[in-house]
Amino acid sequence: MQTDDLIRALAGDTRPVPRHAVERRVGIGLVFGGIVTLATIAATLGFRPDLDMAMQAFPFWMKWGYTLSLGIGAIVATLHLARPNAERIDWLWLLAVPLLLLLAVAASELIRTPVDGWQRLWLGHSWTRCSMLVAGLSVPLFIGLLWAFRRLAPTRLRLTGAMAGLTSGACAATLYGLHCPEASATFVVSWYTLGMALAMLGGALIGPRFLRW
């Protein structure tokens, strides 16, 4: 095809693009992915019956504070990486702050507990399933992000994949918190973190293949 014909064809398709198109698209992808994840939780796991009580207590907000702050940080990084001329991210290490804070909470929890109670704090009732559920529930969110990226232009594909994976893992963990009755910081910092790390690793592994354009 001649370049002039191509220009004519492209110019014939000049639909207006909204401001903040990147943010909108990522938002739409996450909302749709989140709906699927939430519906999956509702249909298979169920929400914790004492949810309204739990929402007035510390452990619930400890969990949400952790997963939401990680999720927001990862979303900001993902939005940043969606543009081709993204500058280096100097603040990526800030994503470690929620983890360090929760480690501190877990440490104080362990100090206040006699040693024979540690195993219960660490393993809870659901340590065998928690990480895999978080990682599995992140898949619809990740697919939503992959859809969003079909109109975006990342150039560092592995890092972008990792941040998209962390975004979907952290959002999935947040929604999973509506089901999960575990209340110890030691549990959350171990198994939630493992689940989100798996999602991030998966994103980093498949990012270069699926985010190419």
């Binding site: 198109a21 543009r83 001329n85 109109r151 150039t155």
Partner: peptide
Amino acid sequence: TRRGTYDRSRPFVAWAYAVARY
């Protein structure tokens, strides 16, 4: 296809070259 990733407040040519370089 990816014109939505151009941020109107930033230099345009740098953005276009970033796409070209990729």
